[in-house]
Computed example of a mutant assay.
Amino acid sequence: MKIAVCLNHVPDTASKISVGPDNKSIDTTGITFVVNPYDEFAVEEALKTKEKLGGETVVISLGNDNHKESIKKALAMGIDNAVLLKTDEIYDSLSVAKTLANEIKAQKAEIVFFGKQSVDYDNGVVGQMCAELLGYNSVSVVVALEIEGNKVKAEREIEGGREVVETELPVIITTQKGLNEPRYASLKGIMAAKKKAIEEKAPETVSNYTEVLSMKKPPAKQPGRIIGTDASAVPELIRLLKEEVKVI
Rank of each mutant, 00 (worst) to 15 (best):
N123F: 15
V112P: 01
K216V: 07
G135Y: 05
L84C: 10
A109Y: 00
V142H: 07
I198Q: 13
T167G: 02
R156A: 06
D27S: 06
K86H: 13
F33T: 05
E163P: 00
K50F: 00
N123V: 14
A231V: 12
K246G: 09
K151Q: 14
V165D: 10
P182E: 08
D92M: 02
Q176I: 04
P223S: 15
P11V: 00
S232Y: 09
D120H: 04
V83R: 08
L62S: 08
K48M: 10
Q117N: 13
I111K: 00
A197H: 12
I158R: 07
E155F: 07
K105N: 11
K177R: 14
N123D: 15
T99L: 03
F41M: 11
G55K: 00
S138L: 06
E168M: 07
K177I: 12
M215A: 04
F114N: 03
A202N: 14
I71R: 04
E51G: 04
V143K: 15
K48Y: 04
A231I: 11
K177M: 14
E40S: 13
G55P: 00
I111N: 01
T13K: 12
V165T: 05
Y136M: 09
E56C: 01
V10C: 01
I147A: 02
E146S: 06
A97L: 01
V212L: 08
